[in-house]
Amino acid sequence: MANVLTFRPEGIYCPAGDFYIDPWRPVDRALITHGHSDHARPGHARYLATHAALPVMQHRLGEITAEGIGFGETRRIGAASVSFHPAGHLPGSAQIRVEVGGEVWVVSGDYKTTPDGLCEPFEPVRCHAFITECTFGLPVFKWRPQNEVAAEVNAWWAANAAAGRVSILGAYALGKAQRLLHMIDADIGPILTHGAVEATNAVLRRQGYPLPDTRHVAPDLNPKDYPGALVIAPPSALGASWARRFGTRSTGFASGWMRLRGVRRRRAADRGFVLSDHADWEGLHQAIRATGAEKIFATHGYTEIFARWLNSAGWDAEVVPTEFGGEEDEVVDSPGEQAPAS
């Protein structure tokens, strides 16, 4: 099998097209799967991402030299043909397909296989080699249907509202926050947002993604004017003085990690909702099977265990030697970390 992609200290590299995919060190040409900071890093000379992903990237990275591409559109870069296909992770997120001399490799980026109603749903892409994330690549990770989790969140919010408590839900500012906004029952009460969440909402609204009305918690906002409100804020704001303005409150946190009781307790939130924008164990298998790939590379997550399992189950799998820091949306989140200014 020809090496369409190789692994360099800068990141995943395509020699035929002389470009990188989601590189972690500054390079000349970067193809970016989505806007989370562990995938879209600053400092590259040229960026290429989907039209749908670009506005958030520009909002987060500032002045960058960037080109957009439509989902499914093929572009020639050197001797390689590349195209972007929905990954279902968050609005605009893509898998990147690279074809060189008839050999096809796909980089999954982050993905989930079940539709959430807001972002472009995951599309399997046939390939010879599939570089897959495996953030939740253990059989203990199984997600329940989104409507069941939505019902749990709604019930928690409604009960808090009835008891005169504000509900504060911790969720990452890009992706999880908007998915929650889209899936909850906005008729229960007013919805307030932390500045970091609201800034992303504004970008996505301009792109036409349907989000319910929200009100930014500006310094002059009086929480008493919004009884029974649901507040959506980055996780780091929950324990910070920022949250104190809401008085009597119940805190919740939505993440795939909430599946584990130990992590749930470390978060010290009142409620943990098991909701992830990554594929669960079954989802990873569905995606891998649908690619028809004979070679699998595991990255981001429980890579060694997942690759060992795939090998034992008949695939040819290995681990991508990656350098990466904390993953923005799922891996490390610190109560000590400062909340972005509201």
Binding site: L138, P139, V140, L260, R261, G262, Y302, I305
Partner: peptide, 8 residues
Amino acid sequence: ESYPIVGD
């Protein structure tokens, strides 16, 4: 392998 990660 899953046990130490879950912790219980």
